[in-house]
Write a protein that binds this DNA or RNA. Structure first.
Lengths: 247, 247
DNA sequence: ATCGTGCCTTGATCTAGATCAAAGCGAGAG
DNA sequence: CTCTCGCTTTGATCTAGATCAAGGCACGAT
């Protein structure tokens, strides 16, 4: 029996305590921290989590907020970003189902989190999840592995932001989206690109205009095709790969 | 009794099995993974590590090499970097004593590691360290905390690379170095800047010329002073902070 | 001492991408 | 059906920082 409530400090979100055997049927179980746990252990996880549904454009939390909840994306796409005082924005990552968010060193979030599409997430009280990590070292290890691969992705992104030109950035971005979709079992070619030009720009350190022009260039040179509903067909993976590395 | 040997596949490095009670006296014990262990537990760590000394400019390992060793910096400064096929380089981080390197998701390094100054490191066989992590969950947790804070630093760096201008980048860089030095108990103001202009450029996504000009500008406006031996005095932290955030 | 060989700095010019400006275009509201 | 409003595309111009080009300076080797 699900009960609706107001979930977050910001705007409205619908939260529902999971009825029964929740995690077992979870579509992202195999992708996330949960994959570290056995069926019976999952019960303890289910006990501390609440499922949250949000509309597109919902701010889950903002940089500097007290970081007492962690989340796991189960459906939809989220974006994480940082702002400079004058409003310049850097999106540090897009999250897909299975991704974790909310980790922080001190006790405040180091970035803001907002949904790109309608999304659902599992919400965990930080303290209680930490308790679980103490009891289940394999879960701790799994979380460490996830953080490590995020770190590797962050280093790739530094190379992109520091040294690649606009075309290389867009090519890399499309390949990355396609690769991630594939590993989660979604369509990898036509790849779904749900975020706006302006989000892409803020992720790649460009402007909307440059992103738009570069998409047009790639389309004109037949390397990609822009389809309906935010889908992009990658017509020549090989060329795209070369473009991405500037070879 | 120390025995010298050739350590790495690349160039020569001097490795020495530690004689006795090694970690106890280690200058960076409190800063690194080791801080998670008690004196008696440290013995097991000491058993699997070898101390390595390298000259400045020594390549410890290269991107793509088999990642079967991990390192902990005990003295000196290291740099990690990624290369594009045409030689463009992005330095993804500078490591100070206490920092860990060598983590990888698959079994190859995702970046190259080279010493900026003469350095000493502890070298661990990956398998055996992983064994230790299984036995000591608190060490696992400590490593996770270190990875998390590296991740947070990487996100800051994305903001810098994606959205800050040259002056903001240099100001941020100097403040970051000073802050890190402070937390490790080194001099924070005149701050030691051991890396070349070209390394700084490749870390900040600029060219040597721009780095040099920007240092000159900051010097001319009396915000910093360039001292002997790669030291930089930060004359006005407040202004520097404002410059860094573009306020 | 003198010579090189790498840095580092400074100057002149160029350019990729930003900025400024103005149409298209499309989905939801009325 | 038509009107908006927000997003996207395209065009014209501008500029921060890259690139090209000399010198200057310091330190190790001869």
């Amino acid at each position: 029996m699900a009960l609706a409530e107001h979930a977050c400090s910001r705007e409205s979100a619908v939260a529902a305590r999971i009825d029964s055997a929740p995690c077992n049927a979870c579509p992202v179980r195999s992708m996330s921290v949960c994959s570290a746990l056995e069926v019976d252990e999952l019960k303890r996880l289910a006990d501390i989590l609440v499922s949250v549904k949000v509309d597109a454009g919902h701010t889950l939390f903002a940089e500097g907020d007290g970081a007492d909840t962690l989340f796991n994306v189960t459906a939809g796409t989220m974006k994480l970003y940082k702002l400079l005082p004058d409003g310049r924005r850097q999106i540090t990552g897009f999250l897909l189902p299975g991704d974790f968010l909310g980790l922080s060193i001190n006790d405040t979030y180091a970035y803001s989190a907002e949904s790109v599409t309608p999304a659902t997430l599992c919400r965990f009280p930080r303290r209680r999840l930490e308790g679980l990590l103490e009891d289940y070292p394999k879960m701790q290890r799994r979380l460490f592995a996830m953080a490590s691969s995020e770190l590797a992705a962050a280093q790739d992104q530094m190379l992109l932001l520091g040294r690649k030109n606009a075309k290389e950035r867009i090519a890399s971005f499309l390949l990355m989206l396609s690769e991630r979709a594939k590993r989660r079992g979604y369509a990898e070619n036509p790849v779904h690109v749900p975020m706006s030009r302006s989000d892409i720009a803020d992720y790649l350190g460009l402007t909307t205009e440059t992103v738009s022009r570069t998409f047009t260039q790639l389309k004109t040179s037949r390397v990609i095709s822009l389809l309906e509903g935010g889908k992009v067909r990658l017509n020549d993976l090989e060329i795209l790969q070369e473009l991405a590395e500037g070879a």
